[in-house]
Structures are given as C-alpha cells and as structure tokens.
Amino acid sequence: MWTIAKLTFREIVSKRIFLITILMTIAFVTLYGVAIHFAVQETGPMMSNTMDNALQNKFFASQLLGVGLYFSSFITALLAILSSVSSIASEVDSHQIDTWLMRPISRTQFVLGKVIGLGGLLVMYAIALFVSITLIHQIVGGEMMELPIGIAQMMKAVSIFILQPIILVTLGVMLSTRMTTLNAGIVLIILYGAAFIGGFVEQIGTLMEKAALINIGIVTSLIFPVDAMYRKMTVLLFDTADNPISFAQQGMFASASAPSNLMIIYAILYGAVMLFIAILTFKKRDV
C-alpha cells in the first residue's frame, strides 16, 4: 500500500503538469500579494478612523481574503480532479497496472495506496496555498487588512479546507475504477460545478430568505459536500461569520448560511463511502 502511495505521489510530482501548476500557483500567490499591496496603497489614504470606515475596512479585507481562498480552493479542486480521474482508469487502459497488480498486493491495498498518495500530495498543496494566501493577506495588507484570526482558528479552518481535496480524490478514484478517464472527468467536473453553483444559490437564498433556493443549496451539498466544506471553513476562519453582520463583512465568498457541524461528519462519511465503493468496484473489475 505504501509503495503504491509513494509511487502515486512521485508520479504526479514528476509530471510536467504538476510543475506548471506549481509555477502558476507561485504566479497566482505573487499576483495576489501585489493586488493586496496596491489595494492598501490605493484605498488606505481614503479611509479615516471612523467606526463606519473600520467596518468598511473589515468588509474589504475579508472580501479580499475570501476571494483568495475561494480561488485557492478552486485550483486545489482542479488539481484533485485532474489527478484522481486518471489514477486507475489510465493505468488500466495502458495495461501499466498489470505488473503492479500481479505482485502480492490486494486490490484494496492498491486503491488505498492511490488515495493516500494523491490525498497526501493534495493536502500538502492545499495547506501550503491556504497558509500562503492568509499570510500574504495579513502581512502585505498590514494594519488595514488585519483580521482577528488566531492560530486555533487557522488550524480549524485548514482542517476543513483539506477535506475538499480529500473528498474530491475519493470520488475521483471511485469514478476512475468504474469508467474511463474522460467520462470520470466529465462527471466529476459537472458534480463540482453543481456544488459550486448550489453553494452560491444557497447564499443568495439565505440573503433573500427564499426557502426553495436554500433547499437547492442543501441538496447539492448532500450530493457533493465540497462547497459546503468551503463555507464551513470560512465560518471557522472568521469566527464572527454566523452573526448577523458577518455576511456584510464577507460577501459572497463566505457563508451567509453556515453549514452545521453535522455536515462535517457527513462529508467525512461521504469520503469514506466513496472509498469503500471504489474498493468494492475495483475488486470486481477485470483489468
């Protein structure tokens, strides 16, 4: 299992697409830092120290951090989708899997190895991106962008942030055991898109107090709880997020409708069930 995990990890790292992703991530983080710098420079002199402006500052700061984290979540998700949907299907297609599976390892160990390798890499990537964005926001933004984020809040938020790639990887690997890379990719992107849109619909529904819109968001979260985890992460990061003024602070990239703690348990179970289905499917599959 650990050998497969190591090989999976090394394989992704060795691919050109990973190098491109890392370079583009560095470019994104740099650009984000530059944007924060100019945002502070351009808007700073206009702000005075009145109560209204302090609130406006918080709103502005949380919006910029929310955008950075939302995009971070998006590129982590894309990397998770692209790497997981081909993890088993492409090896079956090319018969590369034959010489691995004829070794004295079980199919269960093979699937677990794939999930651990992919999940491990993506968790590291997600943590690095989350910490980079938050630190750049707080350091480059200085006093104007300062948000009351403690270490404990950061830890809690990161632990939920990394649930997103883990869920994506388990679902991606599960799809990869059942269908071709292309089909698995299409299904996973559509599901991710549905969760993404469902999340926004739910926020709008909460703002407008429309039950139907909220229910659509809840249903999409149950089908694919990735966006719900992002929303929960923002609640944990900005611990005032579920009070009445928090949405005013955070806008569309945070959570007007805060997912419950039960949703975290549901998301973890969701990943576990997907992994279980992946193992069952792969055990029965001819390669």
Binding site: H95, Q96, D98, T99, M102, R103, P104
Partner: peptide, 14 residues
C-alpha cells in the same frame, strides 16, 4: 503471486 514472475505481452512501465 508471492513467488511468481510475469512478463506481459502488452508491457508498459512507468
């Protein structure tokens, strides 16, 4: 498969 070796016809290695 502990003491088995295999050279597949459609061999492809990483």
């Amino acid at each position: 498969r502990e003491k088995v070796g295999y050279l597949p016809e459609l061999f492809r290695y990483p």
